[in-house]
Design a protein around this nucleic acid. Structure first.
Length: 491
RNA sequence: CGGGGUAUAGCGCAGUCCGGUUAGCGCACCUGGUUUGGGACCAGGGGGUCGUAGGUUCGAAUCCUACUACCCCGACCA
């Protein structure tokens, strides 16, 4: 499966690419920048979806669906929004093909030109707010708490599997509120949901904060984000939640009558996470032996591999194995019993190890005699022999401790790679060395942020919420600063 | 989008410079047998319009042109 697998040390980005492809998560496709998500990768995404969807519903949201296409004119209604997305839009100009005159293939029918071009959505604020205009008349119609699961297209120059693809899958929440305070509360609530999901389910510690104006979403008043730290010391933005103020309501003329019978514009938020989370998941935990998945998101949590010399042995082992399968399933644990005789045990060990299955059980004749099973955990690669009595609860606990261990490991890594820095030289040295999050003072200007980016490729990942107030001097300009911000090189 | 590289069987590669029998190799695949507690072995077998489209030539994987995809570096990137 993966005999010649590049190590992280050798070439981190090659390691990542090989991992995604060889673990059968996704493949490149015939279409530039677009990937095929394979069943195993999609199964992980489905788990992510299910959990998040429950969390959204738990917090009062409903799912809906809006069109893939957006009339071009919609984009120009919100000035900074169009500016942010104009350079990466796919545009539909025609609606028909015809046989080419030379009879070889088809051409775009020039007579089928659209009156107004359609944009393939890079995000849905505009089409949704156009719809909200007709949904909202009164404060009684508010709040509107909608989420949609969709694909979007952003024509990026350079793509990487899961991390930045031309088409990607995501969810986008779009809410409408009667008051500013309520919209801000929603924005903060949802970044909290994302942080909780990242930490509890993905076992990925994240920093929570707000973006500098430079990094803010096009059209937002404030952008909240969660940022994870990958094993190569680069940050990855894993989710964003935007307070949109009244920008889109004004652009799409969405007004409502308040209790006081006053006409006012509606307050908005939008928030999203994408298949990029897959990239975050992969890069946070995986190692030189392949994928490592946190049990809570692993499509297969436990695999059972029989070790046998003949049919008779297999029959006996299967009896025991199927008993374990039943007990594990009763506890809600997803388990696969791989009794194929087309592959040898060693081959299977490597296969499931590479695919990140958290726990592997091996049962052979020796175990039948002793009433035991061999248990191997993917996170530490440790093996142990368990008595088969009450095996399902032992495994259940093991899965929990693997989940915790992965989080702790990632957390320790982040702590080791988060540094406070007060001088420019230290700042540059860290970035050129191990990287990581760097907490430093910044004078608050976009010009300074830009200069730092030009010189070091590092950007402000976030400004901590309720961060400690302290007097300091900007790392670059020496001008006064009241709070540290988090810098890093990022994906 | 700029610079560089790559494209030959499912995967990884050789052959291309210097055009000329039937395009090879490893892994994978199929059949039979022996095997099975960390990627088995032996024997036999199948699979390729050499990325796509043109061009040069008696003859093109090989030379020329265009296009497409992927990789690396840059620019870009809620």
């Amino acid at each position: 499966m993966a005999k010649d697998f590049t190590t992280r040390e050798e070439n981190y980005s090659q390691w990542y690419n090989e991992l995604v492809i060889k673990a059968e998560l996704a493949d490149n496709s015939a279409v530039r920048g677009c990937m095929v998500i394979k069943p195993y990768g999609y199964a992980i995404w489905e788990k992510i979806q299910r959990v998040l969807d429950d969390m959204f519903k738990e917090t009062g949201h409903q799912n809906a669906y809006f069109p893939l296409f957006i009339p071009k004119s919609f984009f120009s209604k919100e000035a900074s929004h169009v500016e942010g997305f104009a350079k990466e839009c796919a545009v539909v100009t025609h609606y028909r093909l015809k046989l080419s005159p030379d009879g070889k293939g088809v051409i775009v029918d020039p007579d089928a030109k659209l009156e107004e071009e359609l944009i393939v959505r890079p995000t849905s604020e505009t089409i949704i707010w156009d719809a909200y205009r007709t949904w909202i008349q009164s404060y009684r119609d508010l709040p509107i708490l909608i989420n949609q699961w969709a694909n979007v297209v952003r024509w990026e120059m350079r793509t990487r599997l899961f991390l930045r693809t031309t088409e990607f899958l995501w969810q986008e929440g779009h809410t409408a509120h009667a008051t500013e305070a309520e919209a801000v509360e929603e924005t903060e609530k949802m970044i909290g949901v994302y942080a909780e999901f990242a930490e509890k389910w993905m076992a990925m510690p994240v920093l929570k904060g707000i973006k500098s104006p430079n990094e803010r979403f096009a059209g937002a008043v404030e952008t909240y984000c969660i940022e994870g730290l990958m094993q190569d010391g680069k940050a990855l933005q894993a989710g964003t939640s935007h307070f949109l103020g009244q920008n889109f309501a004004k652009a799409f003329d969405v007004q409502f009558l308040s209790k006081e019978n006053k006409l006012d514009y509606v307050w908005a938020t939008s928030w999203g996470v994408s298949t990029r989370l897959m990239g975050a998941l992969i890069m946070t935990h995986s190692d030189d032996h392949g994928l490592v998945l946190p049990p809570k998101l692993a499509p297969i949590q436990v695999v059972i591999i029989p070790i046998f010399r003949n049919e008779e042995q297999l029959t006996q082992i299967s009896e025991t194995a199927n008993g374990i399968v039943k007990k594990l399933k009763a506890l809600g644990i997803s388990v696969k019993y791989d009794d194929r005789d087309t592959q040898k045990p060693g081959w299977k060990f490597n296969e499931y190890e590479f695919k990140g299955v958290p726990v592997r059980l091996a049962i052979g004749p020796r175990d039948l005699e002793n009433g035991t099973v061999e248990v191997a955990r993917r996170d530490t690669l440790e093996k142990a022999v368990y008595q088969i009595t009450d095996i399902e609860h032992k495994i259940s606990h093991l899965l929990e401790s693997i989940q915790e261990n992965l989080y702790q490991k990632a957390y320790d890594f982040r702590e080791e790679n988060t540094n406070c820095v007060d001088t420019w030289d230290e700042f540059v040295a860290l970035l050129d060395g191990k990287g990581g999050f760097i907490s430093a003072h910044w004078d608050g200007t976009t010009e300074t942020e830009q200069r730092i980016k030009d010189e070091t490729k590092a950007t402000i990942r976030l400004i901590p919420i309720n961060g400690k107030q302290e007097e300091g001097k900007c790392i670059l300009t020496g001008k006064p600063s009241k709070q540290r911000v988090i810098f890093a090189r990022s994906y």
